[in-house]
């Protein structure tokens, strides 16, 4: 009888022991010696802290203009697409009425990175080969797996101001000056995305002291593209697009600010604004200069909405 009883309860003792052991293990790991996060890396940061980290990288870039360093730092965050992460954060920042300077810094860094990444990938390289580099830098030791390494021999490459957006205009009516127009693929967000072709080796940045002149005010009619936009392009004196230029759109009872370069796929100096019907807008750049006025929605001859292309240039 007793032997039968022992035989019957044997497996239960084993199971009970396992459960007790497991519970003891949990107690130890949860109560006695809980996990403490130490020596973590930026990739493990919470999303909002990653945003802060990214903003910090962009702020530091404003001082050093060292793309190698900025890219190495950004890669620590393990973003799938560095440029997209920057531009999305810039747009989020503007969207919630955040710090415009911060958004501008993020946009400028995104635009600069977009150029060198495209250039590097075009050359079959895994990273930046010769961007604008100030000095070799120290980078954090742990987990820096970037293939981009600061190089003490990197040199500045000559400036090549040409920046091409695909010149694929479909129709154009009453243009004051004909310039390249953007080939756009409609997206849900109504932000077009052409494929940039040539890219410069160095990113021009806004020169705060130089005023802009209004070079062209152009009506665009592109049947297959979203209309109703004010497209702004900022160029320097050499006709290279400039990222990070603040654009101010005003209308009766309202005003909006945004920056060029937040959609680097459309050009570093590009920015756009959605017009509402029956509202008259004026556009200028914050860094002084002329204003494009009397901009409102219009209908093209085909019955679809057209857009405005406003080009500002530093003399």
């Amino acid at each position: 009888m007793n032997r039968d009883h022992r035989e019957n309860r044997g497996p239960w003792y084993l199971l009970t022991g396992l459960i007790v052991g497991f519970v003891l293990g949990l107690l130890y790991t949860w109560a006695v010696q809980p996990v403490e996060y130490v020596d973590t890396n930026p990739a493990s940061l919470r999303v909002d802290y990653k945003d802060r980290y990214r903003a910090m990288i962009a702020a530091a870039y404003q001082y050093n203009h060292d793309l190698v360093r900025a890219q190495a730092r950004l890669e620590l965050l393990n973003d799938e697409d560095l440029v997209r992460a920057l531009t999305e954060q810039a747009q989020r920042t503007l969207g919630v009425g955040g710090d415009q300077a911060e958004a501008g810094s993020l946009g400028e860094l995104a635009a600069a990175l977009d150029v060198v990444i495209a250039q590097a990938s075009g050359a079959g390289s895994a990273g930046i080969s010769s961007p604008e580099v100030r000095t070799p830098t120290h980078t954090p030791e742990p987990a820096l797996t970037s293939t981009v390494q600061p190089s003490s021999t990197a040199t500045e490459t000559p400036e090549s101001p040409l920046d091409t957006i695909l010149p694929e205009a479909t129709q154009s009516e009453s243009t004051l000056a004909v310039t390249a127009t953007i080939t756009r693929t409609p997206r849900p967000s109504a932000t077009p995305s052409p494929t940039p072709t040539e890219t410069p080796t160095r990113t021009p940045t806004s020169t705060p002291a130089a005023p802009f002149v209004l070079r062209t005010t152009q009506r665009l009619c592109e049947q297959n593209q979203p209309g109703g936009l004010i497209q702004v392009i900022a160029l320097d004196a050499a006709e290279a697009q400039i990222a990070g230029v603040e654009v101010i759109v005003t209308w009766d009872g309202g005003e909006d600010h945004f920056y060029t370069g937040l959609q680097p796929e459309l050009g570093r100096g590009y920015a756009d604004f959605d017009m509402a019907a029956d509202v008259v807008y004026a556009v200028r750049l914050a860094e002084a200069g002329e204003t494009a006025r009397e901009l409102s929605t219009f209908t093209c001859s085909g019955g679809y909405p057209g857009s405005w292309r406003i080009t500002f240039q530093q003399p």
Binding site: Y37, V38, D39, T40, N41, P42, S44, L45, R46, V47, Y49, R52, Y53, M56, I57, A59, A60, Q62, Y63, N64, R73, L76, T139, P140, E141, P142
Partner: peptide, 22 residues
């Protein structure tokens, strides 16, 4: 979902450098 205070000292040092640059 960690916070910056848990970063290793190497990353904190680089963060401070970024703050210094900014």
């Amino acid at each position: 979902d960690t916070s910056p205070d848990t970063l290793s000292i190497d990353y904190k040092t680089d963060y401070v450098l970024m703050a210094a640059e900014a």
